[in-house]
Design a protein around this nucleic acid. Structure first.
Lengths: 366, 366
DNA sequence: AATTAGCACTCAAAAAAGGGGGTTGACAAA
DNA sequence: TTTGTCAACCCCCTTTTTTGAGTGCTAATT
């Protein structure tokens, strides 16, 4: 993979490439040979650097927006930078602590971990943060309960083993005897605990159709609940926060890019799909941290943006992803370690609620 | 209040003022006398119009950004426009239907009404939409239930009479017998149904301290639940969606304004406070639809933005607000009727779940 | 063979220099 | 009170000039 010859590479070519990337990320201006000569490599003349940069251009790492006026990194350069040049540094202990604290106070403060995590990501990265929970249909049921709300109305509450809670109101049209409701709930829980939503639905359908006695008279309710479980539920799976942050750290040049990006992200489906694909991809290759640079995303809307994401596991099951999306010219080293770290925080937070002794049968609920 | 003399006003001055506002909203360019003369008032010469516009300027309705080159409306003009000139037109029946449909399918599709409503507002207005739920502490409890999650962990579920559902995990540290949990739940519900959260907390505290038998041994749990109820919960009260929309319909000139606005909105607290104040203000003056134009907001971040909002009632109690926030030069007539309409939709949707026969005692839950 | 100095050339960005078009204020006439 | 007219204004757009950093190339140097 390492394309550049070791000797030259290590000593100069790589150094120059790294410098161009860093400089460009910092200043957002094409980098020229003089600048490098004077600030990074005082012992080498600008002419030499020009030669090297010409080589780098030929190899596809640099690119001149105009015949003269400095060069800027290509996607390939960023990729190389991320893969070989950016030392995936651990974050300073002090910073870790600071973040950890912020995380704890936020995540415990509010029931919705996902939103808070996205927000924290955004705040710390200066880009937009997201948390994506993988397809709910594949998650496993921990409990499905019903709370009588009012005559003719019941609140269904679904808890998955990955700790997500989903609730929705169900209209039955008629009032259900609360005792029977509890019986139903108990029955259902015995049947479906630990199954995926999809499986659970199948089982329940069978029972509804076979007119199981515990369900008798409540077929309506059961049917409705099933229908609601079935829904793609696209929306609640994806949390994106911090457009403001992103805007903040963006110059007017990127206005159009941002517009496009937002349009894309606000079509939740497309962004969800992207993340879903990415997730399975990462699962296959057993990758933990992923960086997708510009056109690597294969979506024209994202050609000037990068996504840094990490898979989020509970036990050995990938349950979601989280990360940030921001301009291609971002501080990869910092952001990568940040995403990495917050990912681990969320994981341990999830673990807290789910990796408890496998949901022991407390079916003496009666 | 009506400052302009009726005769002149009705016939010309107002007409010109209205025309300037509408034209400016449409084109975003200063409006000159010729334009008005040729397109709006062909029977009047441009010189006359100049005179009138000079008056309007003197009275503070118009303002010249440059010594020549047309005039643009001041905040005062927008205010006048909104108050007297914009006929608060009903929306076309067809459009109403269309929206109603969209609303139904979205709101029923997903458990989170608030987010969906915000999104719909954004989509239809082209600005950012928000829904704000007023201070949870004042909302009334419908139910508080517990679902055993795992040994040592319980999920608390709170349903308010305005239909909001809040849930959070509680760690007890030790496993609670589910039967006793149910007893507790029943006991609590008997005690606090219909009270405000604040009241409920007070009552519960008393019981915890007096060591009521139903609570015995579960003081830990109760205490934790109380603590969680007590939290300001600032975050879950405010939903803002559609920055993308807003960006979309914004020219590069407003970039800075937008940045400021987003910064402001993403500091949830400040925006919440603003809305909270606005809400009490509206409640006092018994106002239904409110429009705050530019500097009327008394926040420099919003000096170029307007907020159109409506109070949202369940029964006769104001439970929240919803509306849109967008550039000062928006189509007020359209947006106002839109906000109005969607407000009524949300209201009736809430009513559906809450104004049912006053939550009959189904305490035979046992 | 690699490096360097020097030179002519290129081109984007910034500054300067025109018009054009629409607007205004003023004033005199209707 | 309204209107016609006109000089002056000034934003906006386009064109031109200037400037400065950067490049490629070649010949000289190490």
């Amino acid at each position: 993979m390492r394309i550049l010859k070791p000797e030259v590479a290590k000593s100069r070519k790589e150094k120059i490439l790294r410098w161009v990337v860093q400089q460009y990320v910092e200043t957002r201006r094409p980098v020229g040979s003089q600048m490098i000569a004077s600030e990074a490599l005082p012992d080498v003349s600008s002419a030499t650097i020009r030669n090297i940069m010409a080589e780098l251009e030929e190899e596809g790492y640099l690119y001149q927006p105009h015949t003269s006026g400095g060069r800027i990194p290509t996607d390939k350069a960023y990729r190389y930078y991320v893969d070989y040049l950016a030392n995936v540094q651990k974050m300073a202990a002090k910073e870790r602590e600071r973040i950890e604290e912020a995380y704890d106070s936020r995540v415990n403060e509010v029931d919705n971990m996902m939103v808070q995590t996205s927000r924290l990501l955004a705040m710390l990265s200066g880009a937009a943060g997201f948390v994506y929970t993988s397809n709910v249909q594949e998650q496993r049921v921990q409990r499905l309960d019903f709370i009588p709300l009012a005559p003719g109305a019941v609140l269904a509450i679904l808890v998955t083993q990955s700790g997500a809670v989903r609730h929705w109101p169900v209209r039955t049209g008629y009032t259900i005897n609360p005792t029977r409701l509890r019986v139903l709930s108990r029955f259902i829980n015995e049947e479906i605990e630990g199954l995926t939503l999809a499986q659970a639905r199948r089982i329940l359908w069978q029972h509804v159709h076979s007119g199981h006695q515990e369900i008798a008279g409540m077929a309506d309710l059961a049917t409705q609940v099933l229908k609601d479980m079935e829904r793609p539920q696209t929306d609640n799976e994806l949390y994106v926060e911090g457009f403001g942050q992103l805007l903040e750290n963006t110059s007017e040049d990127d206005f159009e890019d941002l517009k496009q990006m937002m349009r894309f992200v606000e079509e939740r489906d497309r962004f969800s799909n992207l993340l879903s694909e990415k997730m399975t991809g990462m699962e296959k290759s057993n990758q933990k941290l992923n960086v997708s640079i510009g056109s690597e995303n294969e979506l024209k809307e994202l050609k000037n943006l990068s996504i840094v994401s990490t898979a989020c596991k509970v036990g050995d099951k990938t349950v979601g992803m989280l990360g940030i999306i921001g301009p291609k010219h971002m501080e990869y080293t910092r952001v990568m370690s940040l995403v990495n770290f917050i990912g681990s925080l969320l994981e341990s937070s999830l673990q807290n609620w789910t990796a408890l002794p496998p949901a022991e049968k407390d079916d003496d609920y009666e």
